[in-house]
Every structure is written in structure tokens, then in C-alpha cells.
Design a protein around this nucleic acid. Sequence first.
DNA 1: CAGCTATATAACCGAATCAGAATACTGGCC
DNA 2: GGCCAGTATTCTGATTCGGTTATATAGCTG
Lengths: 99, 99
Amino acid sequence: MLFEALADGNRRRILDLLLERERPVHDLVGVLRVSQPAVSKHLRVLREAGLVTSRVDAQRRLYRLRAEPLHQLDDWLAPYRATWESRLDALENHLEDMT
Amino acid sequence: MLFEALADGNRRRILDLLLERERPVHDLVGVLRVSQPAVSKHLRVLREAGLVTSRVDAQRRLYRLRAEPLHQLDDWLAPYRATWESRLDALENHLEDMT
DNA sequence: CAGCTATATAACCGAATCAGAATACTGGCC
DNA sequence: GGCCAGTATTCTGATTCGGTTATATAGCTG
């Protein structure tokens, strides 16, 4: 579910906003240019992917980022990162050879 | 297009396979359990996202991984990584306090 | 050139996705 | 209790997506 959750731009935007601080839904609706129900649905997807948690504050729900699942993404990325790092090394070596 | 390209499991599978080595389409069809046209379409999406390139070899097309765009993903991930690393630090500090 | 292999594209289909409008639910406030 | 604010859920429609089958294209090979 993780990659699918990140596939949508509005959802990534929400995560970016929650990176700064915990926020109520209303706050997110103000920033994104979509309806409140749309935001609620994106939040549900993110919640189901474990990327956000919410706590109740009177009528509001405060959403908070939960970055742990992104660790998976980091893990998936690792072998690819190795690839481009080795290419970078190759470039560096090449440059060294030129000096 | 990057995140959308990675949203599908079969496409990530293709990238994983190309991580090992360059491969013709036929090869990928053998591994994934979908039809040849389906694989071709996934390859098109990956190509348009800049994640693979192909070269002609007689009737075959050899697909090769191009990991560079994943650098973007790495960049996007960076601030979140900072988050969980700081939490890890917090845990370490906590453990230190206990000793 | 006829036929085979490898791949891409087109046409089509069902399921999933995303958006908005309408509605339901919940907690504070008079 | 009646009302308002804030949020979630339901319903609906348009679009996209991922798959298959059928067809087109290109390069061997006899």
C-alpha cells in the first residue's frame, strides 16, 4: 500500500505539510485546492498506509506524520542507490585519472 | 510521473530484474505472469519516466535500468529520513540514560 | 519471398481512482 | 434540546489503469 499511497501528488503534499507540524483537516483543506471530503479520503489512505496518525481535539482531528513506513521505501531504494553511487565513483575516478 | 511509475508492483519487479542485468522483453514476460503486451506497456511507462532505456539487438530490444530518476525519490525522502533518524537518536539517548 | 520470432500498438473491458455534492456523525455552546 | 463547527462516509460520475486479444511492424532464416 505504501507506493500507491505516495503515487498521488495531493497526498505527498499532505505529508510535506505534516512534516512541519501536526495539523487539523481544515488546515489542509485550506492549502490544497480540493474539497474537505477529498482531503478526508486522502487522509484515510495515508492512515491505512500507516503514514499518519490522528488524535481527537474537540471537534477537530489533528493529524500527525508517521514516517516509519518510509523506511521501507528507503530499503527498496538501497540497491539502486548503490548503482548510481558506483557510477558517481566511476566518474570521480575518471576525473582523478585526468589530473 | 516517477511516483506513479513506481506505484505498480509489476513495474517495480521489472526494475528489480533489470538491476541484475540488461534483458530482452521476452525474458521479463517469462518471469512476470502477465502477457507480452502488458509487459510492453509497463516498459513504456518506465521509459517515459526515464527509468529504463532500450537498445535494438536484431528482433529483440534489450532493456536496461536507468536509476538516475530515483535520485529524485531519494531527495524527496531526505527530510523524512531526517525525522526518523532523529527519533532513532532519541531512542539511543534514552538507552544511554538507562545505563 | 514465405514464414517465424520478437516486440509494439490498437481496441476493448472491468476494476480502481479521484473528485464533488449530499448526508451523517460528534462535540462544544447557547 | 437546538444549533453550529469539524470531519467522515456515501453516492455518483468521469477518468485512468492494468489486463487480454487481435493486429501491425521489423528483422532473421530457409
